[in-house]
Amino acid sequence: MRNTRPARFDPTTEQGVLRLSIAASLAMAAAAVGFGLLANSSLIIFDGIYGLIDVVMTWLSLLVVRLISQSTQVEALQSRLNQRFTMGFWHLEPIVLGVSGSLMIGAALYAGVNAVDALISGGRQIALGPAIVFAVLSIVAETGLALFVRRANRAIGSEFIALDAKNWVVAASMSAAYLVAFVGGWALGGTAWAWLVPYIDPAILLLVCLFVVVAPLGTVRQALSDILLITPADLQAHVDAVARAIVAKHGFLEYRSYVAKVGRGEQIELFFVVRADDRPRALLEWDRLRDEIGQALGEESTDRWLTIMFTTDREWAI
């Protein structure tokens, strides 16, 4: 019997790409810690810590993706977990993204403080040979992974994968900074500027930390917006345009719309106020009207939570 289950590392699926990224991140983090200890470089050790944080948060992202995917399957709707979370798991996505970005920022701030302390204390002597080897290997591996993840996400369109691709770009940029710093330190050895060599490692670490602090700010800001249920202006405008057209077409009195974006999920609630003397309609006719509104709002998706109600009492719409 042929196995129809998708491969665990299928690059055409969100979960497959995230699993590949987790495996690569774990390997790179272990290599960074090893080379960092060998070279006595706080810069490379920070790269390893950064990678380990990325592994943990990517694993959490994968878990959330699986929960969201399973919760939207009909056969899973009666599971015990789904009965405890009847509103779905979309709210976990911005939480994970926000925590991930915040941890990256926190780690960078801590490493930045240590870098400043090292600069004040006279710098740090490092073994440049292992450091240069690691920087070259890292640039090749991380650049390749960044390109692979971005290309895979063109068809998938996942916020989690987009953040992961951004993290690989950050990692490759950090490795490029390492290479420039270490090669520069090697070139300065034996010259009148050799006294600068101990300051290279903490100085570049400080610059990298400043970059790492800035990179996730957009993701953290968007995650906070989703957690606070701030209404996206473009989505609200689209929903209002559809609702106004329905009111005009069917002679309703008015409408109320409530819109929020939570991670990949869109939550839309529409209340239409109908005239008290409006002609009686069969339930089937109201359902057809709901279908009309749903189609006007856009293609049906498992990530859209749509509620449409009709009432003659304005208080039900407030």
Rank of each mutant, 00 (worst) to 15 (best):
W193D: 02
W193T: 01
R150H: 14
A171T: 12
L270V: 06
A23E: 00
H238C: 05
H250M: 04
L196E: 01
L283N: 10
L289F: 10
A233K: 06
R256F: 06
V65L: 08
I200P: 09
E142L: 05
R281A: 11
A171Y: 05
P198W: 00
L20D: 01
V239W: 02
R154M: 14
N40Q: 06
D54E: 06
A215V: 12
R80L: 11
R221M: 09
A30G: 08
A245G: 13
Q295H: 14
H91K: 15
A260F: 03
V212M: 09
V55I: 01
N153W: 14
K249D: 11
F89T: 10
S42E: 00
V242W: 05
E266L: 09
Q236W: 01
V56H: 09
W195P: 03
V56K: 09
W195V: 00
R304C: 08
W186Q: 09
L270N: 11
L119Q: 04
A135F: 06
Q125K: 02
R124C: 00
G16Q: 04
R221V: 07
L63K: 15
A203T: 06
P11L: 00
Q15V: 02
I44P: 15
I139Y: 05
L207K: 03
Q267P: 04
S138C: 06
D291R: 10
G251K: 13
V214Y: 14
I156V: 13
L43I: 00
E14A: 14
F35H: 04
L60V: 13
M104A: 12
A181C: 08
A7L: 02
T231A: 06
R264L: 08
